[in-house]
Design a binder for these strands. Structure first.
Lengths: 140, 140
DNA sequence: TAGCATAGGCAATTAATTTGCTTGTGCTAT
DNA sequence: ATAGCACAAGCAAATTAATTGCCTATGCTA
């Protein structure tokens, strides 16, 4: 699922190659599920300081490497951006799916449907999140 | 814009009529803009204890009086639910608009476009938030 | 209008995030 | 290869946000 070698990805964004940064990318790039900050902290807490994790996530978001999705509880979740993302514009305009049983967030390969704005409003981005039961939880 | 008399609304949901509860409804029902918890606190902080405010908002959400929208920063925003909402199912399926300049959240009178889920996923609700510049800020 | 259930207020706790500062390390130019 | 610098990591502490417990106050029913 990882679209790119972490080391190249870092270099491409003028970021130094550190153990911690690579680990974060590895963890997030595992599948197409966005992962929450608390979950990342649980997985990486022994290898990476919590403050460092916050900083890495912020850096990645700024650089357009990760995009952030807020879930129902206002918790930040992160997923790898498509290669088209840049520091100044995120193209994370696919639909997200938030499972209300296991709380995972999936990035669905569905385009966000176009909507027409009322007069006076200009939309730069549209985020769509569907809530329900995911594949795995439906099966159980 | 207020759809209903606050006192009747409270009674209809088996909630005691208190000054604090009425004030919160008044503040939120003013227009069709969702209002954030911090903003509410700023406006009501001198009349209502912050803990009471948290509790009132939670109660209203549970009862289906308010619905909650998370903005980009993970801050909770609240808006009056349509009369069709109940404690067990929110019908807040219109599109929200989050102005990235003034940070207001508008409830647009647009239906959330239907999207088809991948096999295995069942969606119970879909939330769509558009980000951009609102009416007022576009004008300025 | 008495009594009770529950709402509000205050204090304190817990959790989440940010900031400052010091140490450590990747990377570039010798 | 390595010296030096810019910046990343780690730790401590400060903020900020949200929750909990407990006591008092008050709306509502009998």
């Amino acid at each position: 699922m990882m679209r790119m070698d972490p080391i190249k990805l870092l270099k491409a964004h003028d970021l130094k190659h550190t153990r911690q940064r690579v680990r974060v990318l590895e963890e997030i790039a595992m599948d197409n599920v966005a992962i929450s900050q608390p979950e990342l902290e649980k997985r990486l807490g022994k290898e990476i300081d919590r403050v460092t994790l916050y900083r890495i996530l912020n850096t990645y978001e700024d650089k357009g490497i990760l995009h952030r999705v807020m879930d129902l509880n206002g918790t930040a979740n992160y997923a790898i951006c498509s290669p088209a993302c840049s520091a100044h514009h995120h193209h994370d305009e696919h639909v997200h799916f938030n499972c209300t049983r296991c709380f995972k967030i999936y990035c669905l390969e569905i385009e966000v449907p176009g909507i027409k704005m009322p007069k006076g409003f200009t939309a730069n981005a549209v985020s769509t999140i569907a809530y329900g039961i995911c594949e795995k939880c439906n099966f159980i």
